[in-house]
Design a protein around this nucleic acid. Structure first.
Length: 708
RNA sequence: GGGCGAUUAGCUCAGUUGGCUAGAGCAGUUCGUUUACACCGAAAAGGUCAGGGGUUCAAGUCCCUUAUCGCCCACCA
């Protein structure tokens, strides 16, 4: 063969990547239906859908690379392999992003028509979605774009709604007034896992309340407090009886208060006596239900005080707080203020807004049975954690299930298929159905589902549940995703899978860690240490970037990433390029179709390669891609380039017999093929490009060549 | 309060079921421009694998313990 000119200059990824991706895509082999040969065994990975509202980050890079390595490997071993892409509407997050955009334009979603708002967000998301998809292609991932799915496409919407209807009919969902986490700025409720705690130092106030001194950090909620709670064993209050009543002078005049003795009171905190505000505290609400106490709203949905606050009505709570304290001081009811009080404040995880507990009618999923099914299935070994360290955490969470609030007061999502008719007394009649019920007065619940309600059904929806052809891929092989989804997403998919089909959606769960910057600090826009996979791919080549994402990145632990690391694998790509150059040059007078006797020495090299190749295969199959990648690197550079290749140099010159030379040529020819194959899942572009020139009969794309 | 994990070369980290003469990248030392590659090669240097104890023929790897650091969950009127 003649050495192609392209090898005369160093490997320049940008000259090849786009056209190679197009070649793969045009070949149709991303779609398992088009793969050649008999393929009885299926292999399927469902892509965790990136949110359709922004650019890819380094986490996506790792995520996609790991999945693509597994996909490409299994495709080469002859399985009917499907890597199924999609995107998630990411309800609350997307609407948040969109509202910021509106704000910049001096607009607001409030007052906008529901459908207009939805349509505007839809257009915004579609634009971003296309950018994301072209970004994904730059990562070289071999997913079947013909099966690309979006959570808000009509057939997904209707099937997700059907699940809700089935759950309602099965008594698995209910509607009820509950203490919810309310985000007053974004006007929506949140589930437990959408909130986080932040340690803050706030003043802690002690007020005289009848014969008691109560402690509180939230005086602005106290207007309607008529119940005092102390611990039954608290000796300081032994003289008072449970349900004893007192006349109390309070913020806006005298009231009648009642003492409750209950173990929820913490004797260590403050004076051990508190008053309760059921509407604005989850714990208090539970207590109110236990003793059948009245509940009254003090703070409105915007975070302002209601008329019950008298002169403070209409005031934002953080403004009212010091004024209320001042009034109590003037009345001589303020005992003392502890300025050093540290406590945890619940915030909205995505927006950082302080959450206000409120009481609202919401839809809930009953979790007890679903959680039990999920645990039972785990015990039976129907699915398992590759990253074992998460199993215990997962179990603990599943053993203490909380009912799941699935209603969101936003438009960007799948509307809940429930119709409500209220009579004059405010009693509600509810029909759950996709179609509007017969008769007058029905309005559809304006709320949408929590995003995780639809993404929890993602493997089912993408594979066409209930009766689509692709259900042959269910259960899928592995769910590879970020560890932050151990509660948010993974358990929900398992629960929906078991509930709807009786089978888990995937066999193995593999969590990769977070990608940190080179100092080990979490990447974030505000810190300015974000590394874009797209820029890395442009600067160093996608193959180099993929290697950097995999090497030294064991399952389940975080990984720092630096440009130096990516640069190292760019060099490696060039090394591979020059190995090809050397081998192809050496094969100038070699006939690859002729039978050649391989010398004992050369056979040893081939055998050693085969051993390495099999180790790499087992590393990939057993979820050790980080070791597999390192072995590829080490074999190619140290063993092959530095040892094998060097050892052939004298023989390939004219100082040898023709037989020996032919043996060396055949050995190099054979091992180069193997190297391109073992490197392909990790570095698909450069290997495919070198493969183009590889002398072989009946050659196909490297992507679908046989691994061995 | 409950749980998980980390501690290995100057720095950032690998090291699967115990078999190690402990590896990689970057940084740094010496030599080399020998036609695959200077996006390179050769050679050397750097580590009582956090401390202590134990199991074993054998421990970076398993067990106990101490210290430091990180993360997650729960709760805090």
């Amino acid at each position: 063969m003649q050495l192609p000119d392209k090898y005369l200059s160093p490997y320049n990824s940008s000259d090849y990547e786009d056209s190679l991706y197009k070649t793969w895509e045009d070949s149709g082999f991303f779609n398992p239906d088009n793969l050649p040969g008999e393929r009885d065994e299926t292999y399927c990975i469902i892509m965790p859908p990136p949110n359709a509202n922004g650019r890819l980050h380094a986490g996506h890079g790792t995520d996609m690379t790991l999945k693509d390595i597994m996909t490409r490997y299994h495709r080469m071993t002859g399985k009917k392999t499907l890597f199924l892409p999609g995107s998630d509407h990411a309800g609350f997050e997307t609407q948040g992003v969109f509202e910021k955009k509106l704000q910049k334009e001096g607009r607001s979603r409030f007052g906008m028509d529901r459908q207009d708002l939805y349509n505007e967000i839809y257009d915004f998301v579609m634009e971003n979605k296309h950018i994301t998809e072209s970004d994904l292609k730059k990562l070289g991932i071999s997913c079947d774009w013909s099966r690309n799915t979006f959570t808000l496409q009509p057939d997904v919407v209707s099937r997700v709604q059907d699940t809700f209807i089935k759950m309602f009919n099965d008594g698995m969902v209910y509607r009820g007034k509950r203490s919810i986490h309310w985000n007053p700025k974004f006007q929506t409720s949140l589930s437990d896992i959408e909130t986080k705690f932040e340690q803050r130092k706030d003043p802690f106030y002690y007020f005289q309340y009848g014969p008691f001194v109560i402690g509180t950090s939230r005086p602005e909620t106290k207007f309607a407090d008529k119940y005092i709670v102390v611990h039954p064993d608290d000796a300081r209050y032994a003289e008072y009886d449970h349900m004893q009543e007192f006349e109390v002078e309070w913020i806006n005049g005298p009231i009648k208060a009642t003492l409750i003795k209950d173990e929820v009171a913490d004797m260590e905190l403050g004076t051990g006596a508190m008053t309760i505000t059921p509407w604005h505290s989850q714990v208090d609400f539970e207590l109110a239900q236990k003793y059948d106490l009245p509940v009254e709203q003090i703070i409105d949905w915007d975070g302002k005080l209601l008329p019950i606050a008298g002169e403070f009505a209409g005031t934002k709570i953080h403004i009212a707080r010091p004024e209320i304290v001042k009034k109590l001081e003037e009345k001589g009811l303020a005992v003392k203020i502890d300025e050093e009080y540290e406590h945890a404040v619940r915030l909205c995880e995505r927006t950082g807004v302080v959450v206000e507990p409120q009481i609202k009618d919401q839809w809930y999923v009953k979790m007890d049975k679903l959680a039990a099914m999920t645990l039972e299935s785990l015990d039976k070994g129907e699915y398992s954690f590759v990253t074992k360290q998460y199993e215990k955490t997962f179990r603990h969470w599943m053993e203490h299930p909380q009912d799941w609030n699935i209603s969101r007061q936003i438009v960007w999502g799948i509307q809940i298929p429930a119709w409500i008719k209220a009579d004059v007394e405010g009693n509600e009649e509810i029909i759950v159905s996709r179609e509007k019920p017969e008769g007058e007065g029905w309005t559809q619940d304006p709320d949408t589902f929590d995003t995780w309600f639809s993404s929890g059904q993602w493997p089912l929806m993408t594979l066409g549940y209930p009766d689509g052809n692709d259900m042959e891929y269910y259960p899928t092989n592995v769910m590879e995703t970020g560890a932050d989804l151990v509660f948010k997403w993974v358990p929900r998919m398992i629960m929906f899978g078991l509930y709807l089909t009786g089978e888990v959606p995937f066999r193995d769960i593999y969590f990769h860690g977070m990608v940190l910057d080179k100092k080990g600090v979490k990447m974030s826009k505000s810190k300015g240490n974000v590394m874009s996979p797209i820029e890395l791919a442009q600067d160093f080549g996608t193959d180099a970037m993929r290697m950097a994402f995999v090497v030294a990145n064991p399952p389940g632990s975080d990984m720092p990433l630096s440009e130096d690391k990516v640069r190292a694998y760019k060099k490696f790509a060039n090394k591979l390029w020059n190995i090809a150059r050397f081998v192809y040059t050496s094969l100038e007078d070699f006939d690859h179709t002729a039978a050649v006797a391989i010398s004992e020495e050369d056979q040893k090299h081939i055998d050693a390669f085969n051993t390495t190749r099999d180790e790499i295969a087992s590393d990939i199959e057993q979820y050790r891609p980080h070791l597999a990648a390192e072995k590829v690197y080490h074999y190619v550079w140290t063993t092959f380039a530095n040892e094998v290749l060097e050892s052939t140099k004298s023989a390939l010159s004219d100082e040898t017999t023709p037989e020996d030379k032919a043996s060396k040529q055949a050995m190099l020819h054979s091992i180069l093929e193997g190297i391109l194959k073992i490197a392909h899942p990790f570095m698909p572009f450069i290997t495919e490009e070198i493969w183009k020139d590889y002398p072989k009969e009946n050659k196909t794309l490297l992507m679908i060549e046989n691994w061995k």
